[in-house]
Design a protein around this nucleic acid. Structure first.
Lengths: 96, 96
DNA sequence: GTAATATATGAACAATTGCTCATATATTCA
DNA sequence: TGAATATATGAGCAATTGTTCATATATTAC
């Protein structure tokens, strides 16, 4: 399959977004529905700053979406490609 | 979804294997069938050393498989999870 | 207005990554 | 045997990454 350099870079960037255990754990929590930054931080035992930094990257890759409500920002998975990629990857890890 | 730390790390490692443009381009060539290291190097305009280093990582993640024939080593995708992950990612990039 | 809360962001630093270069190993051919 | 070819590997280095810490912005309550 021929792939332009641009597509290769974009594809690599997409997978990079899922290439860190902290981000994978964020995504796994968001599989069950939207969560605020502080709830994610609490659930993952990470600082809010670290979570926020990671969410920024996930947002820029359009893997998560933000919804502001008062002082809180609720994050959710952006589209179903994300959960499909996640599930397919998990399959590979489990019976790989 | 609850995810153990180990699974999160393994999943991140899997996506890490696809998180670099050079590796994505290697995978894209292997989508069409097996290729030797030097053919990959030529097709990608990379040194054989660089390709070999990357193939090692892909091999360790069980994304590619090696078949030795004489002096050459032919690489191919290890299982169909790989091409499915690749195609799903490409989908996201294209109509994302 | 001020204080408190929730999130975002920039700088800095350690750790990791992907390459090059040199060298090693393995195979074929003369 | 020795030279040539194909691949693998280790060291070293620049570039990138993920975190912490300090600070900024935005919203709510008083």
């Amino acid at each position: 399959m021929k792939l332009t350099e641009l597509k290769a870079i974009q594809l690599a960037e997409l997978f990079s977004a899922l290439s860190d255990a902290s981000r994978v754990r964020i995504i796994s929590l968001l599989m069950d529905g939207e969560m605020s930054v502080s709830a994610l931080a609490k659930g993952l035992k990470m600082t809010e700053s670290a979570v926020s930094h990671q969410l920024r990257g996930l947002r820029q890759m359009h893997l998560v979406r933000a919804r502001k409500s008062g002082r809180q920002v609720f994050y959710s998975l952006d589209d179903d490609h994300v959960s499909r990629l996640f599930s397919l990857g998990l399959d590979h890890v489990q019976h790989g």
